[in-house]
Each structure stands twice: as structure tokens, then as C-alpha cells.
């Protein structure tokens, strides 16, 4: 850029504008040209680590992951070992939370139950992000008839409420395990991600750098994968985190109705369902898995809320 012609300084005007080195603005304006540019992610991280909501929820989730990966670190009692002579007894040496009606250890079942919830949540969310992400990205990026077909297809699945669809599908399945429950939830959960991804891709697609990449001769698929998708992921990550929480709650509800995970799998939903018969006399047996479940769902919701503030400037609640 050529030097700007310096405007002629008229008499009396020179003292209105202080020289740059004398104003406090100089300090603000000093941009380190060598520093790498702040990316969307670095910016989000800077915003996130100051939020107590984020710190608390991610610590809980970290603990939850450790518990579900290595439950034996926290208890050495077999969650399936039933001693009917100790049915519904209170806390005892080595059994801090007492016993269920079947005489199994409440604390051990609380610890071992985390794995069922976390694995269903993680598998379902992974499926939903992959299916919904691909469908949404294709619909948003290519538009036209592909968008019309994919969007109407998603509408059909979106029209069936998650729990109602889940009840029908689980009723029809012979094999009930973490994977089939996750699959069932994913079948009715993916359209939400697809809608978010489509909207996000539509927005990113109209940016100048996408036009630039296209005009430089980059293939359509490459533009989509290298430039559009990475920048459109923010809102999807937010919705995926919140979905993880809702999937865990839905799994527990299905297990509570006895059509989710089988009784042989240690799960919070199943434990709550079995404890309801003794609610009036021994409420604590029901209380502990309920607390485990609620804290888990809540921490994913809180993480999603914090991530929304950081990643999705439009939905920012301030």
C-alpha cells in the first residue's frame, strides 16, 4: 500500500491530536505481529477456563470417566455378590452405603453402574454426531434436491419423540445391551444434530474464505472437509454435549421401564427401578443411584451450557 499523503496541518490544529507515543492507546495498539493468530478454538478455550461452570462440570465428568473405566480403583466389592442375610441393612464396615434388598452392596453398584450410563451416552452421541453430521453437512453444503430429500427424511425421524420411539423399538428388540440401547436412541436422536449442522454449514458456506478456496480450484469435497466442516463444528459440539446428558437420562428411563439394559448389567436406571418397591421403608437404596444419575446428567448439561457461551456466539447468554 502506498504511503498515505500526510494531510496538511492547519495552524491551531496540531495540538488536538497527541502524538501516538504519548497516548495510552499506544499500549493497546501494540499488536505482536509475530504471535500466531487466535483461532476459534483458542479463543473458546480462553473464554472457557475462566468459567466456574466449565471447571466444575469438566472435573465431575473427568472423575466419571475414571470411575467408569477403572471401577476397581474405587471399590473391591463385587456389585453382583448378593448376601440375602444382609438385605436392606444400613452402612457397615467396608460397605459405606449399606445393602439393597437383594443384599448387594449399594456403594459398589453405584460405582460399577457408571460404566453402563457413560458407555450408552458416548456410543449414542458418537453415532448421532456421525450420522447427523454427515447428513447435515451434505444437505447444507450441496443444497438443492439433495437438501430437500435429506431434510424431509430427517423430519420424519424428528417427528417421533425420543422416548416414545425408544419404547417401541426396544419392545421389538430381542438383544438388549449397551449397544442396542445406544442404537435405538441414535435412530431418533440424529435429526437434531443434522438440523444444527445444516444450519451451521449454510452460514459458514457464505464466508469469503470458502469462495476463495473454491476459486483457487479446490475440489468441492475438499472445500467441505477442510474449510467448511471445521468451522461449522462449534454448535454441533454444544448440542452433542447436551445430547449426551439427555441420552443418559433416556437410557435410565428405558432401564427403569425394564426395556433398556438387562438386569444382569449393573446400571443406575435398573437399580432405581428395583429399589422402588422398598421406597417407603428404605429410601436411601433408591437415593444413591438417583444422585449418581442426576449429577452425571447435570454435569453434561452444564458443560454444554458453558461450551455454548464459548463456541456459539449467537446463542451467548452473557
Amino acid at each position: 500500500m502506498p504511503d498515505r499523503p500526510t494531510a496538511a496541518v492547519r495552524p491551531g490544529q496540531e495540538h488536538h491530536v497527541a502524538p501516538l507515543e504519548e497516548t495510552p492507546l499506544a499500549a493497546v495498539d501494540a499488536v505482536d505481529e509475530q504471535a500466531p493468530p487466535t483461532s476459534l478454538w483458542a479463543d473458546a478455550w480462553r473464554r472457557l477456563r475462566r468459567r466456574p461452570l466449565f471447571l466444575v462440570s469438566s472435573l465431575i465428568i473427568l472423575l466419571l470417566l475414571v470411575v467408569s473405566l477403572f471401577p476397581s480403583l474405587f471399590t473391591s466389592v463385587d456389585p453382583r455378590f448378593a448376601d440375602l442375610t444382609r438385605s436392606l441393612q444400613g452402612p457397615a464396615e467396608g460397605h459405606p452405603l449399606g445393602f439393597t434388598q437383594q443384599g448387594t452392596d449399594v456403594y459398589s453398584r453405584l460405582v460399577h453402574g457408571a460404566r453402563a450410563s457413560v458407555s450408552v451416552g458416548v456410543i449414542a452421541t458418537a453415532l448421532v454426531v456421525v450420522i447427523g453430521g454427515v447428513v447435515g453437512a451434505l444437505a447444507g453444503f450441496f443444497g438443492g434436491w439433495l437438501d430437500a430429500v435429506l431434510s424431509r427424511f430427517a423430519d420424519i425421524f424428528f417427528a417421533v419423540p425420543l422416548l416414545l420411539g425408544g419404547i417401541i423399538l426396544m419392545q421389538m428388540l430381542d438383544t438388549r445391551n449397551s449397544f442396542t440401547v445406544a442404537l435405538t436412541l441414535a435412530v431418533f436422536g440424529w435429526p437434531q444434530v443434522a438440523r444444527i449442522m445444516r444450519g451451521s454449514v449454510l452460514q459458514v458456506r457464505s464466508n469469503e474464505y470458502v469462495t476463495a478456496a473454491t476459486s483457487l480450484g479446490l475440489g468441492k469435497l475438499k472445500v467441505l472437509l477442510r474449510h467448511v466442516v471445521p468451522n461449522a463444528l462449534g454448535p454441533v459440539i454444544v448440542v452433542a454435549t447436551i445430547s449426551l446428558g439427555t441420552f443418559i437420562a433416556a437410557e435410565a428411563t428405558l432401564s427403569f421401564l425394564n426395556i433398556g439394559l438387562p438386569p444382569s448389567t449393573v446400571s443406575w436406571g435398573g437399580d432405581i427401578s428395583r429399589a422402588q418397591t422398598t421406597l417407603r421403608t428404605d429410601p436411601w437404596v433408591l437415593l444413591w443411584p438417583s444422585i449418581g444419575l442426576s449429577v452425571t446428567v447435570l454435569s453434561f448439561l452444564m458443560l454444554g451450557d458453558a461450551l455454548r457461551d464459548a463456541l456459539d456466539p449467537k446463542g451467548r447468554t452473557r
Binding site: G245, A249, A252, T253, F256, I272, Q276, L279, L286, S290, L293, S294, V295, V297, L298, S299, L301, M302
Partner: peptide
């Protein structure tokens, strides 16, 4: 965050 059946009980 609290599932409806937990709240119910």
C-alpha cells in the same frame, strides 16, 4: 438434570 422418575420418587 434430574430425570423425571427420580424427581417423581
Amino acid at each position: 438434570g434430574i430425570p423425571v422418575f427420580v424427581l417423581g420418587f
